[in-house]
Design a protein around this nucleic acid. Structure first.
Length: 932
DNA sequence: GACATCACG
DNA sequence: GACGTACGTGATGTCC
């Protein structure tokens, strides 16, 4: 479409600076390979532009488009107010040189690129949006900057490109409580800490909207300020009237920016392929070049790999070639591989099986690799596939060794202490071999090496690691196995495909190992890997294989009882609601409560649905019967579906026990995670829930013993933050929350009330979690100001906590990670992000050393435990963060408790000398509930 | 597959 | 340039 911009035209205005900052913070600090120039933000920017262009199809596609940038730091707003944007942090050093490149990138995409000295992008956007509107066209502003919301309406909308979220007049109202034309008034009152717009002190968006809606507009409000009832508010508005008027001028966008181009100059143009691909090649964006070339129907430009140091290049650059892998079909070939393994002294091993549950899965084949590019697959039980046989056949495929023979040949090597077996997630392969009576040792695990070096940076699965550290995307398993109903197990995969896939996994593992092994030392995490990760593998494998006995009858009876109770509640709920609906649907429930029944307090979340969480319903329960019934129903529904029903399905038919799987490298802090089923969240806090815990039982003649660390995180906090009062209280065995309460609220210990203690307890936990006034207020259901008062007082009484928090944040900003007392690193890549994400990252950074140190301590205890209890008729079954559960023959309970408690209490020794001693509490019983 | 909810430490 | 507000998890159901 061409001609003069008008009706039927659609203008897109992209907030270029927003794109840049998003790109910068979304990506790690990438550099151009050939010369090390930082190009992360440019890469992200180009990716975003490319995605944007590709997404512009259909009737909504723009006819005109421009990317608008800020230019110069000094604008007419600084003339009005010299502190405007004064508290903004300086642009990061590695971002500055990238800014001009983003202009060139925009032009390379053949998109108009506009800026004007002395004006902010927002003003240019405002001017263009108003022009477009006046000419009867549409305009979409691609930005999430709330300053731009004043422009929305009459064909002007905003679009958050990341969330694909359109904001119209109603959207603005949701955000500001007023429609676009009054947004500046609200902003003038509320101010903006980011841009350093002063506003009216103590007035936020909520109050501002309230006032504006009551008085119509800012002018009237200030004129009639005397009429405001609240004395403090009245005084604020009268005193700061001038400042508020100034703020309004600051946030009001200039819709008359003089421009040296017109809307018609912004018509959408196709990119010039040579120019665009040339630019991308110059930047050395390999992936994006390929994608763009594909779209343009061109050959992808060849981007030369920079000449690396020759000896490294020789080692690292063996290309992946899935056709070069060997299929081992007979004893002679296998023997050649075994000989080769002895020559090298190490081998990467990977097993292929019929499933992910190692307790049930059967071995299908084994792959081996000794050096990059040199790998094989030994298929064992692949089935012959015949085209005419829909049901599959049990005939073994040709070209496979008998499993027994292969294992007989491999076992000495797998057990040989002189041969290092390398794997990716060796717990899995170790358990598969353990099922066959083979104990693999010694081992190395690339997943755990990555975890020790990169926790917090990214996941540690093979695909992630291969892409990140080898630049190679592994063959995906999906197309081989299929999905959904038609999914097959690996033994049905044709041999040629299986060899390529399976051998590649061993090849990748070996290459990762070569890369990671020397880096452990450089990253100074060798001790973490050697003492907290690697030795835990066989310990966890044994625990998982042991499993825990769960009484099916108890669960089954409870399921039935729950089903009846739920049906009853459901009927009552429908009666109270006046109609039938799906009680399990928060969406329908929200509509019933807040639309149909018109209860107060309905708050919509970002997806536009009412929040109906337990805290909301709890508040409503004082006014109406329905919310309480819903809460009851939800509790039972949760217990039934997640526990009494699901747990039964997890009982292994062979062992009659439940075998969880622990992920060692799941949680960034060093904690374990438990899956399939999760046995770390078995109910305990309610009476009903404890009955589920009681279904976890000991075998006849045995007893369950639970040992748990008492207040381990607070003890670690006392040590790390060096809090004398806290240390002393622990030393004297005092009630720690009561002591805190006594210190804070000046209440003698003898006069402590449960309520005061409860508050102190919440604050103690808050500190561990990186406290905020908002969070504490919500937790204690008290006003935010009061909560802030508590926190201030806490810091006053225990000043070293503030020091610890500040030091931790500073350390994280400087190094990009925080550390536990044992040297575990937890990376905090978002610590220098701006806005809310920084808050998250900071709190996580404060929490991670504490939670992580506790995790390290129990890991150390677990590693030492098997040897310590070897002579006792006892088995370690479960770990729940600060608790270990054992099953022990009757009569040996005391002996076990004595030994295990000692191991746990001294687990930090000798590496870390804690100022606070660790205390372990023990319990025992026929079931897990009793053992507490 | 995203989101809301809720179970645990 | 600011998406939200206590840390860390996993499982389930609804809804698109």
């Amino acid at each position: 479409m061409s001609g003069t911009f008008g009706k039927g035209h659609h203008l897109h205005l992209i907030d270029g600076s927003a794109f840049i900052f998003r790109a910068y913070h979304a990506l790690p600090p990438l550099t151009r390979k050939s010369d090390g120039m930082p190009i992360g933000a440019v890469a992200g920017f180009c990716n975003m532009l490319h995605r944007y262009v590709e997404g512009n199809t259909g009737p909504d596609a723009p006819t005109h488009v421009a990317v608008i940038f800020d230019k110069g730091s000094h604008t007419f707003r600084n003339e009005m107010y010299d502190l405007y944007k004064a508290n903004r942090e300086a642009m990061p050093e590695d971002l500055r040189p990238q800014i001009p490149l983003t202009r060139i990138a925009t032009e390379a995409f053949n998109i108009a690129c506009k800026e004007k000295e002395g004006f902010e992008a927002d003003d240019i956007i405002a001017t263009l949006a108003v022009q477009a509107r006046d000419r009867g066209g549409r305009c979409t502003i691609i930005s999430s900057d709330k300053d731009l919301m004043q422009l929305v309406g009459d064909g002007v909308e905003m679009l958050d490109a990341m969330k694909n979220n359109r904001i119209d007049r109603e959207g603005v109202f949701e955000k500001f409580g007023v429609y676009p034309e009054r947004v500046v008034d609200v902003q003038a009152l509320a101010g903006d800490s980011v841009d350093n717009v002063p506003g009216a002190p103590g007035i936020g968006i909520k109050t501002a909207a309230l006032l504006i809606n009551e008085y119509g507009d800012l002018h009237s409000l200030l004129e009639r300020a005397e009429e405001i009832k609240q004395p403090k508010r009245r005084q604020t508005l009268i005193e700061h009237a001038e400042q508020i008027r100034l703020s309004r001028r600051l946030v009001l966008l200039d819709e008359n920016t003089p421009l040296d181009f017109t809307l018609d100059d912004l018509e959408v143009r196709d990119p010039d392929p040579d120019r665009l691909l040339g630019f991308l090649a110059e930047m050395e964006f390999r992936t994006l070049s390929r994608r763009v070339a594909e779209v343009l129907g061109r050959e992808a430009p060849v981007i030369a790999e920079p000449a690396a140091l020759p000896e490294i290049a020789a080692e690292a650059d063996v290309p992946f070639d899935s056709t070069a892998y060997e299929q081992v079909s007979d004893a002679a070939a296998l023997q050649r591989w075994i000989d080769r393994i002895y020559e090298f002294g190490h081998v990467a091993v990977d097993t292929e099986t019929t499933g992910l549950d190692e307790m049930i899965a059967e071995l299908v084949g084994i792959s081996l690799a000794v050096e990059p590019g040199r790998a094989c697959y030994i298929p064992l039980t692949h089935k012959q596939s015949r085209g005419d046989d829909l049901f599959g056949s049990d005939d073994l495929a040709e070209g496979q060794m008998a499993t027994e023979e292969a294992l007989r040949m491999l076992t000495p090597m797998l057990k040989d202490p002189a041969i290092l077996k390398i794997g990716q997630n060796m717990k899995y392969d170790g358990k598969i071999f353990a099922q066959l009576g083979i104990t693999m040792t010694p081992i190395d695990d690339t997943m755990l090496m990555s975890y020790a070096m990169h926790a917090g940076l990214h996941g540690h699965g093979m695909d992630t690691l291969s892409e990140r550290y080898l630049g190679h995307t592994p063959i995906p398993i999906k197309p081989l196995l299929g999905s959904g109903k038609s999914a097959v197990t690996f033994d049905k995969v044709p041999l040629s495909d299986a060899v390529a896939y399976a051998a590649e996994d061993a090849d990748i593992t070996l290459r990762l190992w070569q890369k990671f092994k020397p880096q452990l030392h450089v990253a100074q995490v060798t001790r973490v890997y050697e003492t907290l990760e690697r030795p835990l593998v066989p310990v966890l494998a044994a625990m998982e294989r042991s499993g825990v006995k769960v009484d099916r009858d108890t669960l089954s009876r409870m399921s039935n009882a729950f089903a009846q109770k739920m049906a009853m509640l459901e009927e009552e709920i429908h009666t109270l609601a006046g109609r039938k609906f799906n009680v399990g649907s928060p969406k329908q429930l929200g509509e019933i409560l807040f639309d149909e029944m018109a209860l107060e307090g309905g708050k919509k979340g970002k997806t536009g649905a009412y929040a109906t969480g337990a805290d909301v319903l709890e508040d409503l329960a004082t006014e109406h019967e329905l919310p309480r019934k819903i809460l009851d129903w939800r509790q039972i529904s949760k217990l039934k579906s997640t526990y009494t029903d699901a747990l039964q399905d997890h009982i292994n038919p062979d062992t009659g026990r439940v075998h969880t799987c622990y992920s060692i490298a799941g949680a960034s802090t060093g904690r374990l995670a438990s899956t399939d089923p999760n046995l770390q969240n078995i109910p305990i806090r309610t009476e009903e829930g404890r009955r589920i815990r009681a279904a976890f039982v000991a075998e006849p003649g045995k007893t369950l013993v639970a040992l748990d660390y008492s207040q381990i995180e607070l003890r670690i906090l006392a040590h790390m933050a060096e809090i004398p009062a806290l240390k002393e209280a622990f030393e004297q065995g005092q009630d720690i929350h009561a002591m805190t309460a006594s210190e804070m609220f000046d209440v003698p210990m003898a006069e402590m009330t449960p309520e005061i203690r409860r508050r102190a307890k919440a604050i103690n936990f808050g500190v561990i979690y990186g406290i905020s006034g908002f969070g504490l207020a919500r937790n204690l259901r008290i006003p935010r100001g009061e909560a802030q008062g508590f926190i201030d007082r806490y810091f006053e009484r225990f000043p070293s906590i503030r020091t610890y928090m500040n030091d931790t944040k500073t350390f994280a900003k400087e190094h990009g990670f925080v550390q536990t007392l044992f040297g575990r690193k937890i990376h905090t890549p978002e610590i220098s992000a701006k806005g809310p994400r920084a808050g998250f990252a900071q709190r996580a950074a404060i929490n991670a050393p504490i939670q992580g140190t506790a995790a390290d301590i129990i890991r150390r205890a677990m590693v030492r435990m098997p040897a310590a209890i070897a002579d006792l008729p006892a088995t370690m079954l479960l770990q729940v963060h600060d608790e270990l559960l054992f099953e022990v023959e009757n009569g040996a309970e005391e002996a076990l408790i004595e030994v295990a408690r000692d191991v746990m209490e001294s687990a930090a020794d000798p590496v870390v000398k804690l100022d606070v001693r660790l205390v372990v509490e023990a319990g025992r019983g026929a079931n897990w509930a009793e053992a507490h």
